[in-house]
Structure formats: structure tokens, C-alpha cells
Amino acid sequence: MQENHLAKWLNNELTEAELTEFKKSEAYATYERIRSVSETMEAPNFDVEQALAAVQNRRALQSTKVVQLHPFKKFLRVAAAIAVLITGSYFYLNTLGEKISTEYAENKEIVLPDNSEIFLNADSEISYDEKNWDRKRTIELQGEAFFKVAKGKRFTVETEAGTIAVLGTQFNVEGRKDFFEVTCYEGLVSVLFNGVETKLPAGNSLMAINGTLVDTMTPTTEAPSWINKESEFKSIPLRYVLDEFQRQHNIVVRTENVDLDQLYTGTFSNTDADLAMKSISVPSRIKFKFEGNKVLFYAENTP
């Protein structure tokens, strides 16, 4: 008899002789019965369609799970963006450093970490990096300021119109909308204006109106007039004089039939408004009407 002959028999693989011999054996009857009865056996019910639907459901469920994760991912993305913005602005604001400004009719005196001094005229603003002052002496200026720079590394003043660089000196910078003026009182100042560098020795000044250089007076004093509570002008268009008046006295200026381009030479007080208005109107041959915090300048021949 072959190896595993019971398996072969069930599979009809026995030879004729083997089968005959097997049928003669005592156990054959039971084997035959096991074979025939086991043919009627059935496994538990299994609903193929239902099982397939269940698999498809689970697949759908799994794909929705992925979708459900998305809001969280989005949230993470937003959170990351906010975190970057916050750190970014923190560092940006940190580098901006110190900021000092003056209102109309206000002056300020600022002492820098290296004992350099800045006198800030009305309606002006400076900013600088206090932490890195030792390495980088740079001031950003809007408006007008007088600088007494302590000796040391290069000292730079940046305005919209031009950049002024010095080592140690005293100078005045006015950088307003369309008016740029640098006056050197001591030492040597280098002015970078419109890409051209001008060396300004003591007692010289550089002035530009509307972006063009104009001749200007040479300073006779040791400091700008406004330090002594006066505003001094030499051949300056009246519009800038009136602007300065408005800044110094915080009085709103209006004009009627006045030629704002006529040149004004003179000085007005920064403390006495009435006196200042007279100082402006008399040489310009105009009249003024003062009410509250408003003043109207008008031509003499109009009512």
C-alpha cells in the first residue's frame, strides 16, 4: 500500500489492485461512511454580498477618516504660520530699537549711550538701535535735529533725502517732506545726497529744496538758531517759513492771496507767537488775523 493511501483513496488515486485490497480491510466500511457523510456537511452560512458591503463600508470609513484629519492639519498649518509671524515680528520690532519723537511746539534733548547729544526740534522723530549702539552709530531721522557727536566710530544720520556721516562733530540736520538742510558747526561732515558725496567743513551748510541744491547762508553762530528758541531764515521760500511757524507754535496757518514762493530772510521767536507772526508778516508785507489756534495770513491789498 502507498504512503498516505487514505488521502490517495479519497482523491481516487489508488490503483485497481490497491483499491480491491483496501475494500477488503476491516476498516473500509467506516472510511466509506466518513466519506459519504462528510459530503453532506455544510459550513455556517456566509452572506457574500453582505460581507462585500461591509468591506466597502470600512473602506469608505477609512477614507473619511483621512478627511477628518484635515482640519487638524490645517489648524497646525495656521498655528505654524502664526508662530512664525510672532517670532518674526518680535525680532523685527527688537531691531527697530529706540524711537523718540516730538509734537508741534515741543523740543527734546536726548543723550545717547556714548554721550552724544541730540536736540530734537518740533514735529520730528529719531530712531536708533540702543543695544548695538557701540557697534553701529546710526540714527534715522525725520524732521530736524542738532547733533553733538562724541568722538568715536563713524556716526551716521539717515534721512529720506540723504545720509550724513561724521566721526565727531556738531551739526544740524533738517530733513522734511521736500526740504533738506545740513549745517556743520564743528569738524567735518560728509553728506550723501542724490548719490553725490559732499564734504562739509565747519561753518558750511548744504540745502536742497524739492530735491535740488540751493545756495544758502553760512552759519554765524555756534549752534542752530532754534536751540536758542528762535528760527532763522535766509532767502527761504515763505511756504517753508510758515511750515516752521506752524511746527514751533502749534498754530494752524492758512493763507489768502499770498505768494508762498517769495523769499524770506529773518528770524522769528519760537516762544512768543504774536511776536513771531509780526516778524513774518512785516518783512513780507502781508497782514495776519489770529484767532484761537488759527492764523490767517493775507495780502495787504485784499480785504
Binding site: 504512503e3 498516505n4 493511501h5 487514505l6 488521502a7 490517495k8 479519497l10 476498516a27 467506516t30 472510511y31 466518513i34
Partner: peptide
């Protein structure tokens, strides 16, 4: 598998008889 089948039948028959 044949071996398992053979043994399965053998054991079943022995148990039943």
C-alpha cells in the same frame, strides 16, 4: 497535506470505531 489528510481519516475512523 496528503499526510494530514491520511492522518485525519485514520484518527476519525479510530475514534468512531
Amino acid at each position: 497535506i496528503e499526510k494530514r489528510m491520511h492522518l485525519a481519516l485514520k484518527t476519525l475512523r479510530e475514534k468512531i470505531d
